[in-house]
Amino acid sequence: MSKKKILLIHHGQGVGGGLIALLGLIRELRADHTVTVLCIFASEAVNYLRKEGVAVIVLDTWFYRKAYDLFVHSAASFFSPLGLVRNLYTLLIYFMSMYVFGPAALRKAAQDCDIVYLNSMFISDWAVAAKGLQKKVVVHIREPLADGVFGIRRALIRHVIGRNADLVIAISKDNGVRLGLPSKTVTVYDPIVLDETKGVSISVEPGLRYFTYVGGSQRIKGFAQLVDSLDHLDDRVRIFFLGYTHELERLSGWKFMIRQLLSPYTRRLPVLKRKLQESGKIIHIGVSDSVVAYYRRSVAVISPFSVPHASLPVLEAQHLGKPVIVSDVVGTEEFVDSSVGLVFENGDALALAKAINHLAGQDEETLRGMGEQGQKRSRAMHLNKPCVSQLLQTL
């Protein structure tokens, strides 16, 4: 087996499920190859990776520090008037990165590598730059590509990836189908990275039923319908709430005012956060690398995504033998059926509350049976699936 040098380009800035999935990928690749991560943005993700012993390069040019933005066209996003303006800007930036700044950055960073590995569909502009340097190109499709109104952006992204990528890896069958490049695409589910050594002391009260939600106040993770469900939950229900709740506070004053003016959800967000803070059903945890400890203390894991997206918490819960509660967004059926959890109608907060209350009322034997079915499903999903490291050997 030949050892390849891989330059993995990462666009994420926060510490969350995407970064954890990336870390699992890096651990797998480093068993057989040499991996260096090129982070487009200087962020807390850089520090996290370096603490894990990963070799990291951070782009330090004016264009990528000040002007660059991601060319996002995902079904896991929402329309807004501000988005129309942003789309025009990111389209211009996309081509500038593709033909001018990307090649300049890669001529140095990718000089000795064999493979340029793009960790997102959002950075497909780098595929052109990498292919121009005669590198093998891999694109990891972590987002469900949107159709759009006219399909122009979809066609552009599909054309760029189809022409320049040697291999496409999709984290779900749904993501792969949406891209529509079956001859190049392989489905490989994200590896499970759960560190049992990072435990915390969790005190629970007798008679209460605990659940875990991972996703913070992100709209796509179903934050609004989780909060709207709180008034309908049984008194014995408690929810470990993990994740950020301050993403909008990072915006400068004028950006926040524009977002409030154009986005009804942003205007509603302070009310949702206040209701969350005041609820006696919520146990606020914040960002934690001890998520496995909360999963194990819980009756089930709640993943009420409001838009199509593959849910890493669902995979983690099933790996640990925990039932799940999910919304019926497109692609859910690939991961969850009635034997391993409950599926509620997306957007129906009362239905979510009923699902939580239903599992809260189940005995341990029933819950254990659902969890065991989840483990079987998890093993079956990963059984005989090629690992990414093996796939790269074919390039």
Rank of each mutant, 00 (worst) to 15 (best):
I9S: 10
Q13D: 12
G14D: 15
G17V: 07
G18P: 00
G18L: 02
I20D: 09
L23H: 02
L25P: 01
L25H: 07
T36C: 15
E44P: 15
E44V: 12
L49P: 07
R50V: 02
V58T: 13
F63W: 10
R65P: 01
H73W: 11
S74P: 00
A75N: 02
A75G: 04
S77Q: 15
G83P: 10
L84P: 00
T90A: 13
T90R: 08
M98C: 12
A109C: 07
Y117E: 12
Y117A: 12
D125L: 06
W126T: 11
A130R: 11
K135G: 13
K136M: 06
V139H: 05
A146P: 12
G148D: 13
V149I: 07
R154C: 03
I157E: 08
H159G: 06
R163H: 06
I169E: 14
A170D: 14
G176I: 02
G176H: 02
G180K: 00
K184E: 09
T187E: 14
L194F: 08
E196T: 14
T197F: 08
G199A: 03
I202D: 07
G207N: 03
V214Q: 05
I220G: 08
K221F: 01
G222Q: 08
G222H: 14
G222A: 10
A224P: 06
Q225R: 06
L226R: 09
R236G: 07
L242F: 12
T245S: 13
L248V: 08
G253N: 11
F256W: 14
R268Y: 03
L272G: 03
K273F: 09
K275W: 01
E278T: 08
H284I: 09
H284K: 04
I285V: 14
G286V: 04
V301S: 01
V301A: 07
S306R: 13
S306H: 12
S306I: 14
P308I: 05
S311E: 04
P323H: 09
V324R: 09
V329N: 08
F335S: 14
S338I: 01
V340W: 15
G341A: 07
V343H: 03
V343Q: 13
N346P: 01
D348M: 10
A349C: 02
K354D: 05
A355P: 00
L359T: 07
A360M: 03
E364Q: 13
E365I: 12
R368V: 09
G369S: 02
Q375I: 05
A380Y: 00
H382E: 07
V388P: 14
S389M: 05
Q390N: 10
L391K: 04
L392Q: 02
Q393G: 13
